[in-house]
């Protein structure tokens, strides 16, 4: 656990040093999902050009319903994921902004042997994940910003077995609201049909989350186009 705490501190330190150089957005949120009773995530994103934003995201979840090698563990163990979301602005029409999301990620999960009825001896897992999709950003007014979109996250377990764990069609809905200069609150939700692992894994996914977005080093708090953060 101490090692995990050190990793979180290290991650924050890196993010903080980067954030001193240019305008960027820091999202801190928590929520619940089909997979996790409670999960927290920290997301840092920075526009490199007017059309391209890069980010890094850390997520830690307390599992509700997850899988190792296609076998369920419930209300036990841990799940953590690190991802690098990339957002490309590909079109604007009136106030509607269309963005392409590409999000590679790696996920680690684990559970104590006595906490699962798994008989094959697999108690830790590593998975590669990739989410692609289209995200819409709709500035409603100076304070309110609405988001929607459709994405297709894929999870592929690589350790201990090579297993196509899950694919989902996720529908997104979200809002963020300016509460102070450079500071917004956000509420996001998503849901969609899932399949994978010969039917052993999720058949439906959902998540809801809320948090704050801090627009770093900007005197003018524009509608935040931060990267939608998901649970897997």
């Amino acid at each position: 656990m101490k090692k995990k705490n050190r990793n979180v501190v290290l991650l924050f330190s890196i993010l903080w040093s980067i954030s001193t150089q240019a305008q960027s957005v820091l999202d801190i949120g928590f929520g619940s999902s089909q997979q996790d009773d409670i999960a927290i995530q920290v997301n840092y994103s920075k526009p490199l050009t007017p059309k391209f934003t890069v980010g890094i995201q850390y997520q830690y979840g307390m599992p509700n319903y997850r899988f190792i090698s296609g076998i369920t563990f419930k209300d036990k163990g841990y799940s953590t994921a690190i991802s690098a979301p990339l957002l490309f602005k590909i079109n604007s029409d009136n106030k509607l902004q269309l963005k392409l999301l590409l999000k590679p990620a790696v996920r680690f999960q684990g559970v104590k042997p006595e906490e699962t009825n798994n008989v094959n001896g697999d108690y830790k897992t590593t998975a590669l994940m990739f989410e692609s999709g289209l995200i819409l950003n709709i500035p409603f007014n100076n304070k309110l910003n609405i988001q929607s979109g459709v994405t297709f996250p894929i999870i592929y377990e690589v350790v201990p077995t090579a297993l196509f764990e899950n694919q989902t069609t996720l529908l997104h809905a979200g809002v963020n609201y300016k509460i102070a200069n450079n500071l917004r609150v956000f509420f996001n939700g998503n849901m969609g049909s899932s399949w994978g692992a010969s039917g052993d894994s999720q058949k439906f996914s959902w998540s809801g989350q809320m948090g704050i977005s801090w627009n770093i080093k900007s005197s003018n708090s524009k509608p935040i186009n931060s990267i939608i953060v998901n649970y897997f």
């Binding site: 490309f88 590909i90 079109n91 029409d93 269309l98 392409l100 990739f130 692609s132 999709g133 289209l134 819409l136 929607s148 979109g149 459709v150 297709f152 894929i154 529908l171 997104h172």
Partner: peptide
């Protein structure tokens, strides 16, 4: 995944075409 990547590539080129001639558009319908 590949279908989506192909579609995304078409989106990129289409968005340019759209901005120039406004003859190609896009839609997302949840």
């Amino acid at each position: 995944k590949y279908i989506f990547i192909i579609l995304a590539s078409i989106f990129f080129s289409a968005s340019n075409t759209y901005s120039q001639s406004n003859k190609i558009g896009w839609f997302i319908t949840p």
